[in-house]
Design a protein around this nucleic acid. Sequence first.
DNA 1: CATGGGATTGACT
DNA 2: GTCAATCCCATGC
Length: 187
Amino acid sequence: MRRLAQQFYAQPVVEVARGLIGCVVEYGQVSGVIVETEAYHDSEPACHAFVGLTARTATLFGPPGRAYVYRSYGIHALLNAVAEPEGVGAGVLIRALEPVDGIDIMRARRGLELVEELCSGPGKLTQALGVELTCNGADLTSGPLSIRARPRAWQQASILAGPRIGITKAVELPWRFWAAGSRFVSR
DNA sequence: CATGGGATTGACT
DNA sequence: GTCAATCCCATGC
């Protein structure tokens, strides 16, 4: 399965968020199918890029198809895919995966057995993948951290939309997407 | 230079 | 249901 090309990420961020459902994130020996995403855009206050170009948001304003990784609550690394053309601050938060390869490695990193709990949240999946802040700015179209196009089995998947989770601003936008019926989405 | 607020999680009442 | 852990970074003095 081919990697997603830079032109895919250059689309409007909501289209990228919807289009990433069913695609496969891979890093080293582990991989998983994306089953939940959220879109963020510099025009709305929930997005880090709302404050403009700073050291923190430089990745979001940079070229599409890169990883934006930041630390949340001092504990978790959260993984995003940078979207829209360079100069626009937008990204898609990867919120949950269905584990595919390296499940035992994920279990060891997470200290858990249950497959449904390995990647069912944005902080959980980075721990399971081994993604840390050093991945910030990594090129998803050519580096060791990659996102591949939907496998055939996922091309018919039905996708639902609703409000984003865990934010205090712009709560009303239906910019969260998930695979209908998946047991692997966050609670 | 000091301060305060998170795109969360897991443990506990 | 509540709450603490913990650190990066934007902001303000």
